[in-house]
Write a protein that binds this DNA or RNA. Structure first.
Lengths: 143, 143
DNA sequence: ATAGATGCAAATGTTTTGCAGGAAA
DNA sequence: TTTCCTGCAAAACATTTGCATCTAT
């Protein structure tokens, strides 16, 4: 079963928006929360079907969109052309291993500050950014 | 006609790789060089066809891939799901207006240095990165 | 003459949408 | 019983590939 907190947060969101609580939504939430994050739609779908064979791709996509709107998940995509979802938490960027796919999160206030300065310099009002570092992780360098 | 320098660079590349010089390749190069950069495949195709109606999408894509390999162009993609091409030049990142699509290039050695430090910290060997700032340009803020 | 290029149509891969039937409130 | 969901199949969309034909060398 999905952790209490998130389960309640979803229930609250559904109620506030006159949406319905369904087995499928509960199943997707549960599987999503059980992952370490950065899971692709495909992998999520595969895992959901292990427990609930009938669930379609469509429902996984729609439910993840819902979880994003409810503030429980966030969508990311790296250079491999697949959407990934992570459990929503404080702002950060990513370091991705181009060989094994390992993903590490990082946060750097110096970079955040520099971004603001750059936006200022060109008169832009910054809304968001995308910052990904690609390289070889320690294991993949060793081989 | 395409600028001498690039025309020759392409001819050299073609020769070295036993590839053929064709009207289509010359046409794509010419149109590409005449743009201010960050042109999409679609726009490039459209402009090429103004002068050379028979040229297909396939040839545009294949020729741009070739120009990238020859070091004359580089491929970029922002969050609008379309490939863009720019004339190859020194390393830089981009600031993109989410309303009008205006694209500004920037370079920040402080950020570059911070990236190296982050990669070091996690033991990654950095290969490349992707850094895009999205916001409203001065004009779009005014409206 | 021959390796390589072209353009069309079809395939790809991922995400979204239309719709008829099904379940929650 | 009404409103919302679901799953399937089909559509979207940008890019790539297969293939028969054409062309530069």
């Amino acid at each position: 079963m999905a952790p209490e907190f998130e389960q309640k947060a979803l229930a609250r969101y559904l109620e506030e928006h006159n949406l319905k609580q369904t087995k499928q939504r509960e199943a997707v939430l549960e599987v999503f929360l059980s992952t370490q994050g950065h899971i692709t739609s495909e992998e999520l779908h595969r895992r959901v079907r292990e427990q609930h064979p009938g669930v379609g791709y469509t429902t996984v996509y729609r439910t993840m969109k819902l979880l994003c709107e409810a503030g429980l998940a966030s969508e990311r995509s790296f250079d491999d052309g697949a959407l990934r979802y992570e459990i929503f938490h404080e702002h950060h960027d990513h370091l991705v291993c181009t060989r094994c796919g390992k993903i590490v999160e990082f946060e750097c206030s110096m970079i955040e500050g520099a971004q603001d300065q750059i936006a200022d310099r060109y008169g832009f009002r910054l809304l968001r950014h995308r910052h990904e570092l690609y390289g070889l992780c320690p294991n993949c360098q060793a081989e």
